[in-house]
Computed example of a mutant assay.
Amino acid sequence: MKNLMLLGFIVLTFATAGFAPSSYAEQSKRLGSWEVHYNAFNSTLLRAEMASQYGLSRSETLATLNISVLDATLPNKPAQRVEVSGYVMNPLSQQTRLDFKEVVEGDAVYYLTQTRFTNLETLRFFITIKQGNESHELRFHKEFWAN
């Protein structure tokens, strides 16, 4: 049940935007002892009150990135408080640093950031996740459209 709470922000985002939870494009990747869940989407999918609650902006050319980290070695996969940093690279190899904000809601912990894009642009994300001596890099790409 705790795992469902951890993804609450993602599900709540899309449920309040009029999408069924099964239609969101959340992904996960195993990195060492962690199960990292990540989702990048156009910020216009956020309802205005939700964006305000989390200190996020809404724009047709603004992407929102949500990351949560679970300890995959434990039975209930508890949420982990980690250090998250990184950058995004556009097709011209221009880099923009990402500033993550930690959000804690009960047992759920997730990290949010936003970045600009142009219509039909594929962004490459390079995210470093650290906790103590453990450090891993999450890499993925996503194409964005202006709504």
Score class of each variant (00 low, 15 high):
A20K: 08
Q94Y: 14
N39H: 14
G18L: 03
A108C: 04
L45T: 11
N76Q: 14
Q94L: 12
L65C: 12
P78V: 00
Q94P: 06
F140I: 04
K101L: 08
R139Q: 15
T128Y: 02
A51R: 01
V103N: 00
Q53A: 11
E35D: 14
V104Q: 05
T13N: 06
S23D: 15
Y111G: 05
F125L: 05
Y111N: 06
Q131S: 11
R116M: 08
A40K: 07
F9W: 11
N66A: 15
N66G: 09
F19K: 14
N133F: 07
V82N: 04
R30H: 14
L4E: 10
E35V: 01
P78D: 03
S93Q: 10
T16N: 14
V82K: 04
E83A: 11
S33R: 11
S23H: 12
K130N: 14
Y24N: 15
T44A: 11
Y38T: 03
I67Y: 02
K2Q: 08
F140C: 05
L45P: 03
K130C: 06
N3F: 02
Y38C: 01
R139C: 13
E35T: 04
Y54W: 00
D99G: 14
E102D: 09
K2C: 03
R116G: 04
N147H: 13
A79R: 01
S22A: 11
E49I: 11
E83H: 07
T16K: 13
V104L: 04
M50E: 05
A72I: 00
K130D: 12
L123T: 03
A63G: 07
P91W: 01
E134I: 08
E105W: 10
G106P: 00
R139F: 12
T118M: 03
E137M: 12
N147C: 09
M89R: 15
R124M: 10
L62I: 01
T73F: 00
A15R: 09
V69L: 01
G55L: 04
N133Y: 10
R81E: 15
A146I: 06
T44G: 05
E83R: 07
A20H: 14
V109M: 09
N147K: 15
S22L: 07
I67D: 02
Y54K: 02
A108K: 05
A15I: 10
A79F: 00
E49G: 12
A48S: 15
S33V: 09
H136P: 08
K101G: 04
E49F: 14
M1H: 10
F100C: 06
M89H: 07
T16F: 13
R58V: 03
E60Q: 08
Q27M: 14
A51P: 00
D71M: 10
F140N: 02
F144N: 05
N119H: 15
A79S: 11
S68G: 14
K29C: 03
E83M: 06
Q27G: 09
